[in-house]
Computed example of a mutant assay.
Amino acid sequence: MLNQQIILASRPDGWVTPENFSLIESELPSPGPGQVLIQNLWLSLDPYMRGRISEAKSYARGVNIGERMVGETVGQVIASNAPALKVGDTVLAAAGWQLFAAMDANAVTLIHTEAVSPSAYLGVLGMPGITAWTGLIDICQPRPGETVVVDAASGAVGSVVGQLAKLNGCRVIGIAGGPEKCRYVTQELGFDVCVDHRSTHFAKELAAAVPTGIDCLFENVGGAIFETLLTHMRVGSRIALCGMVSEFNREPHAYRTLRSILINRIRVQGFIMSDKRETWPGIRENLYALVTQGKLKFKESVTEGLANAPKAFVGLLKGENFGKQLIKLT
């Protein structure tokens, strides 16, 4: 039996293409002392991966040409040299884009899948859900009755942000691309309004959705959308700066409305979840309770097969996914 991996073949110049990656085969890894051999079942694709394949300075070491792509997986232990984990256990690990991985037992997390699907630990119960909680609850600190806006609202992070805000008694405005995603955001997730950023009347429709301004902004997109949102912030408002995915594949946006931060005394905080690993278990417990109680919904976009991961990743960066983007490996 051979392992399969996806490696970075070349750095993208502008938009990422499937040709920037290569699929290779290698011998099945053998677990050493204190390690387990994992057969990966699910692979997570996330926007942060775009930064990892760039030469630009970032908050984490990038992927070099010829190296395996990074990413979180859910898998099953098929061999164990560690007392804490047994064959058959389901685990969460940063195993990267591959079918099998030998990893130290202390680098993986045992997960319980009796009440939730294993894939949920890569979305609502994983890094995206924990990111949503941290940015909204810890940074924005919304109060009942306030207006919360989140862009990329139908995605893995944004969908959780909006639902948590509703649970906290807020008026929630989502921004998403296309009528289908907007219908999902309002009808399924319970947002008060969703504004289609692809609409030719986006600026006018946004203004109508936030007549008294924005108290909390969870920013995922950056660029022209963020520029427009800055003009609607209220005095004393808060912004959790989570991502700027619209600027990954083009020159940085030249912002002209940053004066709003000054005149409205806006508190803006960027955050990276890898800085806060100690908070993950407690937040995951809170999210698990909400999911199992039916108070937190989630949607997944599933692509079959490791070989199709590059194409799915390109689609993710172009906003073609609906909900959490996953690769089903088996």
Rank of each mutant, 00 (worst) to 15 (best):
154 S>F: 00
152 A>E: 09
141 Q>N: 12
152 A>C: 14
144 P>H: 05
155 G>I: 01
116 V>N: 03
130 I>M: 15
125 L>K: 02
146 E>H: 00
124 V>S: 05
147 T>R: 07
150 V>E: 09
120 A>L: 07
123 G>D: 05
158 G>A: 09
135 G>L: 02
126 G>M: 05
160 V>F: 00
159 S>N: 12
133 W>Q: 08
139 I>S: 10
134 T>E: 13
113 T>H: 04
136 L>Q: 07
109 T>G: 08
158 G>E: 13
129 G>Q: 10
113 T>E: 09
135 G>I: 04
112 H>N: 15
140 C>L: 13
157 V>E: 08
155 G>C: 05
128 P>V: 06
144 P>W: 04
160 V>R: 02
111 I>Q: 07
152 A>T: 09
157 V>M: 01
138 D>E: 14
116 V>M: 04
144 P>V: 00
156 A>H: 06
149 V>R: 03
156 A>W: 01
125 L>A: 09
139 I>Y: 05
123 G>N: 04
126 G>F: 03
151 D>N: 15
151 D>F: 00
151 D>Y: 01
158 G>C: 11
116 V>K: 03
152 A>W: 00
123 G>M: 04
110 L>S: 15
154 S>H: 03
143 R>Q: 15
142 P>Q: 04
127 M>A: 09
120 A>D: 15
109 T>Y: 12
160 V>P: 06
137 I>M: 15
118 P>F: 00
117 S>E: 15
110 L>W: 05
119 S>Q: 15
118 P>S: 08
150 V>F: 02
114 E>L: 12
127 M>E: 00
115 A>L: 14
128 P>F: 00
109 T>L: 09
137 I>Q: 13
117 S>D: 14
115 A>M: 10
156 A>E: 13
123 G>W: 01
126 G>Q: 11
133 W>C: 03
111 I>L: 07
144 P>I: 04
116 V>S: 03
154 S>G: 11
134 T>F: 12
156 A>I: 07
125 L>G: 10
113 T>S: 06
140 C>A: 12
138 D>F: 04
116 V>E: 12
136 L>I: 09
122 L>E: 13
133 W>L: 05
118 P>K: 01
131 T>W: 02
158 G>K: 00
160 V>H: 02
124 V>E: 10
135 G>D: 11
133 W>D: 14
144 P>M: 04
149 V>Q: 05
142 P>N: 06
159 S>W: 00
145 G>Y: 04
156 A>V: 08
113 T>N: 10
135 G>K: 01
134 T>Q: 13
124 V>P: 08
159 S>P: 12
112 H>Y: 12
155 G>F: 00
143 R>V: 12
119 S>A: 15
114 E>C: 09
134 T>P: 03
149 V>A: 06
144 P>N: 08
137 I>P: 02
158 G>P: 09
135 G>W: 02
120 A>E: 14
117 S>K: 14
125 L>R: 04
127 M>N: 06
138 D>V: 07
120 A>P: 10
134 T>H: 15
130 I>Y: 01
122 L>C: 07
118 P>D: 13
121 Y>R: 04
158 G>S: 11
145 G>C: 12
119 S>D: 15
119 S>H: 05
160 V>Y: 00
